[in-house]
Simulated scan of single mutants.
Amino acid sequence: MVSFLSLPAVSARPIPTAFSLRKPLIPTPPTFHFKNHRFAVNCSFAEAGVSPNSKSNTIDVVANIKSERIVVLGGNGFVGSAICKAAVSRGIEVISLSRSGRPTNSDAWVDQVNWISGMLTILPDVFYVNWDEVLVGATAVVSTLGGFGSDEQMKRINGEANVVAVNEAKDYGIPKFILISVHDYNLPSFLLSSGYFTGKRKAESEVLAKYPNSGIVLRPGFIYGKRRVDRFVVPLDLVGEPAERILRAVENITKPLSSLPASDLLLAPPVSVDDVALAVINGVTDDDFFGIFTIDQIKEAANKVRV
């Protein structure tokens, strides 16, 4: 059976203007040609009662298909799962790569994701991933990789693991790479030299170098939403949502303070995890969306998809 999920726009050759409508048109079986997510459909319509060898007008329809298939690194995490959910709700095929594979919750969207276990296990110079199983046929890779620990651990998780993923995606010919990074909070340079930020910035540089016209770096601040931790749900939205509303309501007053060192630790609005996910979807579907995006720009991108 041929699947017609996630079909792009169909372009048709001009239909002949002179053909008879005196008898019903009976279509001959269409032929399908598949290659690299694109196919052509050729249909011939002949008048009833006319032999196949008789001259008749034909209508040829050529359908150029572009289906979206994304790979989410860390798709079982807080941000990653929101991205997976938003993508499948819009008919995008999703593969998640994470250590734990399929999440334990039973939400309906979970069944629509291909969950693969086998995260980038970071040991000295070793990355255990079967990229053939993950990247073949993908149209975009979204990385939510990141974590805390010692300086060395953060450099490897936030930086080197993402660098490996970027280069593998490039080698497999994946058109887009989207990185979830972090806002710098106007921190002084000596604080930005920690392993967490240097790792993230190293990953950003690799994305923008390998994907200068399609790489996307999202820099959210504090991300809120309902976060699952084992069997418990931590309602970060109870703090984040009202804080975002208050800070946006007074941003005209606080804007002069934004140049002060570390001021954004208090003044940068939190970002909904759903807004981050929708900004990713905008990046997947909009070829003109690339580069580095700030907190406000993430919100704008999310609103485009939401509308």
Rank of each mutant, 00 (worst) to 15 (best):
K202I: 11
E160P: 04
R156Q: 15
M154D: 01
Y172N: 08
I216R: 06
N186F: 09
R201M: 14
V166S: 00
V207T: 09
P220L: 03
P175S: 01
Y211R: 02
H183M: 12
I216N: 05
G215H: 03
V207S: 10
K202M: 15
N213P: 00
G215K: 03
N186D: 08
I180L: 12
E206T: 14
H183E: 15
A169C: 08
N213K: 13
R201I: 14
P175M: 00
A169L: 10
P220I: 06
L187M: 13
Q153P: 09
V182D: 12
T198L: 10
N213Y: 10
K210C: 07
L192D: 00
R156S: 14
D171K: 15
E160T: 13
E204D: 12
D171A: 15
K210P: 01
V164D: 11
G215R: 03
H183N: 14
E168H: 11
K202G: 15
L208Q: 09
K176S: 05
A165D: 07
V166H: 00
G221A: 13
A209W: 05
M154V: 02
K176L: 07
S205Q: 15
Y172F: 14
L218K: 01
T198I: 09
L179K: 08
E160D: 14
I178L: 11
G173R: 09
I216L: 06
S205L: 14
K200A: 01
F190Q: 11
Q153A: 14
G173V: 06
M154A: 05
P175R: 00
A165G: 08
Y185H: 12
G199F: 02
G221T: 11
G195V: 08
R201C: 10
I174M: 02
I174N: 03
V182T: 15
V166T: 02
N167R: 14
V182C: 15
S194N: 12
Y196R: 00
A169M: 09
V207M: 08
L208H: 12
V164I: 15
V163I: 15
S193V: 09
S214Y: 02
L208P: 10
A165N: 05
S181M: 02
K200P: 00
V166Y: 00
L187S: 09
F222R: 07
V217H: 05
P220Q: 03
S181Y: 02
A209C: 08
P212N: 07
S189F: 13
E206S: 14
L187F: 11
K170W: 12
K170M: 11
F222G: 11
F197L: 05
T198M: 10
S181I: 02
F190G: 01
I157L: 13
